[in-house]
């Protein structure tokens, strides 16, 4: 058993969105934890609520969204009940997030060096004389070649991979203890993706920083994460150490997801699709297990009674009535 006190521990978190089409039950009863220095992958099809989960945890939910309950304890502070200034302090200094499409996240008309300085000036007590040096150090730390020159570059002058490195530099400028990377390499080339992921992994190890990798790419999660949380339609369906998850998936959805991902050994025949679609989360009659309508092992009870969360030995847990 893992007895360490986790860095982030989310318990029974629920989120819903009010929209014109009705209430979207985006997240329900989400529980998981991230240990210090651990790399956790959050995987699932797009629309499963992985991003919303961290928007909720870090307090940057859309105005239409509302946390319906639960706790998210980060370093002793419950982020769900924290005040806006407290959250802002946490976001700037303790927990940083990087996003898909770095070019959009960067200010297009400000030199990247200045953008790093902005963050340093706001969240650290760096004397202004040192800002420039620290910014160049930050650029060098993400292995941007020729940092003195790139300090003066505008985002449009840099490739997608370099922009993502700049984003990482900004995110890590205040040495946070948690980095949330939301699809950080989508849209990058495979070789660039590999380099960016290596960089994140290496910096995390150096600084003993916990990393959450939100991705739809099982392969990426397999390669870079210690533990994987599988989400489906706003539920956590399975949590397990990476090797264990791929060797013995217990939830039918996890097994399906693995079977549908092409990998080095697969051929077209073995590539099986997941039947059906994610359920419409606006429905008022969502089944208790939101996968039950796509699941070949479903029994009538799956749709009716609340999910049983099985402890499948040690740190492997699965939310299924009849696991594999």
């Amino acid at each position: 058993m893992d007895t360490r006190v986790p860095l982030l521990s989310v318990e029974s978190l629920g989120v819903e969105f009010r929209t014109r089409g009705g209430i979207v039950h985006a997240l329900e009863d989400i529980s998981f934890s991230v240990g210090k220095g651990e790399t956790v992958g959050i995987v699932g099809e797009s629309g499963s609520g992985q991003s919303v989960l961290f928007y909720a945890v870090l307090g940057i939910l859309d105005a239409a969204g509302r946390i319906t309950g639960g706790r998210a304890v980060f370093g002793g502070l419950d982020l769900v009940r924290a005040s806006a200034p407290e959250l802002e302090e946490i976001r700037g200094r303790e927990a940083a997030m990087i996003f898909q499409n770095p070019r959009v996240a960067l200010n297009p008309i400000r030199k990247v060096g200045h953008q790093i300085e902005d963050v340093l000036a706001r969240h650290t007590s760096t004397p202004s004389a040192d800002l420039r040096r620290r910014a160049i150090e930050a650029l060098a730390s993400v292995r941007i070649p020729d940092p003195e020159r790139r300090y003066h570059a505008y985002p449009f002058e840099l490739s997608g991979g370099l922009c993502q490195r700049i984003m990482i530099a900004i995110a890590l400028a205040c040495t946070p203890s948690l980095l949330v990377a939301d699809e950080p390499t989508t849209g990058l080339d495979v070789t660039t993706q590999a380099a960016v992921m290596d960089l994140i992994g290496e910096l995390a190890r150096q600084r003993n920083m916990a990393t959450v990798l939100i991705t739809h790419d099982l392969g990426l999660a397999a390669e870079h994460c210690d533990r994987i949380v599988v989400m489906h339609a706003g539920h956590v369906v399975e949590t397990a150490p990476t090797a264990e998850l791929f060797a013995h998936p217990r939830h039918p959805y996890t097994a399906r997801l693995i079977a549908t991902t092409p990998h080095a050994g697969s051929d077209l025949r073995s590539l099986a699709a997941i039947p059906g679609y994610l359920p419409d989360l606006r429905r008022s009659d969502l089944p208790a297990c939101r996968f039950s309508e796509r699941c070949e092992r479903a029994e009538p009870a799956c749709g009716e009674r609340p999910l049983a969360r099985l402890d499948a030995g040690g740190v492997h847990s699965v939310a299924c009535r009849s696991p594999l």
Partner: peptide, 21 residues
């Protein structure tokens, strides 16, 4: 290129990384 593709087998052995642009 081949070694950069993440596989389900976990840590890819002997990865080749391209430096620079």
């Amino acid at each position: 290129l081949l070694s950069a593709i993440p596989g389900l087998g976990g840590e890819a052995s002997r990865r080749i990384r391209l430096e620079g642009d």
